[in-house]
Nucleic acid binder design. Structure first.
Lengths: 345, 345
DNA sequence: CTGTTAGCGCGTTCAA
DNA sequence: TTGAACGCGCTAACAG
């Protein structure tokens, strides 16, 4: 990776390093136009590309923003990634990507790598967990982040604070009103659905999942309904699929009409996918709602009721974009929670 | 971003910089175990995080791999990104992300930014174009890439060479047999479909689109069928949607059964989405097939016939992973190209 | 306004 | 085996 250097440019232009630097990279001091032109010509002829590493080293600011997601191919995360990317572009910075499958130990490693690269800020998407198995991992992650912040780094977290992180300077959480929105969803569903409710949730200890479960139950309670049964499974499509398989017989044999709340859209999709080959159709035989309103839903049938979250904005906010409005979700009732009277689509 | 430095560690451990470096970062020379232990302790106590920028500057190798996509939230690109990410992880490198919306000028800028960061290699996903409006952009992009390669950089491109790039050292193309596969798809469709064919393609000049159109036409010809009419539109969901709108009346009023080939899945999805509210159902009223087999299709109804492409593998290959098999696609016939006899789903 | 110089943090050649 | 010194490419204080 040997490119031409600033000193080569300076020599060819017959000026000093400092002058060349002032001309080529932004400086407050503006050299004379004729000399500047000479430098620019020389740079052009040599194909000079400034060494960002060296610049970062000298300025101690890298122009890098680190992004940690569970899986970049998951529509939830890729939407957030798009937002982060846009914000970065506006700020003239670049995005460093790390996928971790959600294990805190991997996240710690990613943070360390970002810190090593002297990223100006780090965005962590993906739900926090307080599960016992993650205890040590969380502690180490928190320690790594604390150190990073103490060294002047900025951290943006989506949803919940890192477990155990002391809310230091430069640490900021993009709040997502999961609980309130889930309560709102429950309220709206309770108004039109008479049968029992069932929640398909992620593992206990996942904040996002727990918040949505709690909110939904509260919403049901406020509407004078009995609490919903809760089934725990994986926080992804596969988890929803498994739950759907386990549920099929029950739905078919039951007299009562069930309304299922899957705590995120991909789980809801998994449930629906598992039910379909079993002959259970939505909304003919049961209702279902998700959460997030991922872009994929636009072309998913039956149209899935959900709570819309401005995922790109969330990404922008986490990346520190100042003129993005705070997160506010909206309940979206669609076909999947309609009454079964009409003809199927 | 001031963290503790190697010299601080060295001082605290009472050794020289060189020794500390040898202990903490991989070196062929192994210091004595007792002294090494002291250094490690010191590093730990100070929370030392090596400055990758400085390391890169000293070693001139950054451990960075740049990835250029049109849109990270597009399932096609995010799948490739996942592959690149995995390969990077295996190679102990990090991914730098850039989204460009496909404009060559933006791509050039991204390449320059990667070059500035001294990325070890660059992966460019997203179709190449020879459209007139992109001529200058392509030329500049090619020049930038050439320079990058000449300076020792590695470039992996998905699909087609950059227009105008001289195939220099370190420049490698992940070949995708678009034409052959499209021909194969046409052959299989021609075997079961009697009516006319119609191709919904991207703008003329987009290699990927053009290849698939050509292949499909060839396949039809080999099967003794008349060439399909070609409609040009945007190479994305919106393009497909527009085409679908324009097509609805025609399908409804026509006697003949139409089989539509959209040159990628998101376009096929767009077409289907536009047709549905018009009362045109697939496969009842027409057939449709796409290309790519993006993950989204798993939950799209009607199940969409397509050509499966190993997108993650493509990403890995472009990132220079040696033990990923070469790209081979498979035609997948699903419900969307079945005869209309059966009852709708 | 321009040029000189001293670091930024680290790897690596040398001599010890 | 260890340590001292130089250089990676650049920015930002100085001095001219």
């Amino acid at each position: 990776m040997a490119a031409s250097t600033l000193s080569e440019v300076a020599r060819l232009a017959g000026v000093s390093l400092a002058t060349a630097s002032r001309v080529l990279n932004g400086s407050s001091r503006k050299p004379a136009e004729d000399i500047a032109e000479r430098v620019r010509e020389a740079a052009d002829k040599l194909g000079y590309v400034p060494n960002a590493q060296a610049q970062a080293l000298a300025k101690s600011s890298s122009g890098l923003i680190g992004l940690i997601v569970h899986d970049i191919a998951d529509p939830y995360f890729s939407a957030i990634a798009r937002g982060v990317q846009e914000a970065a572009r506006q700020q003239n910075r670049m995005v460093l990507l790390a996928s971790t499958s959600g294990a805190p130990a991997d996240e710690r490693e990613a943070v360390a790598a970002f810190a090593a690269r002297r990223a100006d800020s780090i965005v962590i998407a993906g739900s926090r967990s307080v599960r016992a198995e993650d205890r040590q991992g969380n502690a180490e992650l928190a320690a790594e982040l604390d150190r990073y912040c103490r060294n002047g780094g900025h951290v943006g977290v989506v949803g919940h604070p890192i477990v155990g992180a002391s809310a230091s300077e430069g640490y900021h959480v993009v709040k997502v009103p999961n609980e309130e929105l889930a309560a709102g969803l429950a309220a709206e569903l309770a108004a039109s659905h008479d049968g029992p409710f069932l929640i398909i949730a992620g593992p206990e200890g996942l904040y996002t999942s727990d918040d949505r479960v709690r909110g939904f139950q509260r919403g049901l309670g406020d509407a004078g309904r009995a609490p919903a049964e809760v089934i725990r499974t994986g926080f992804n499509r596969a988890g929803g699929y498994d739950a759907g398989l386990a549920l099929a017989e029950r739905i078919k044999s039951s007299e009562e009409r069930l309304c299922i709340f899957a705590v995120n859209d991909v789980m809801a999709i998994g449930v629906t996918a598992a039910l379909r080959p079993e002959g259970v159709w939505i909304p003919r035989d049961a209702n279902i709602a998700g959460f997030d309103d991922i872009e994929t839903l636009r072309d998913f049938r039956p149209a899935l009721s959900t709570v819309h979250l401005p995922l790109e904005d969330i990404g922008r906010l986490a990346a520190g974009d100042p003129d993005t409005p705070p997160v506010s979700g909206v309940v979206k009732l669609r076909r999947s929670t309609e009454a079964p009277s009409r003809n199927p689509a």
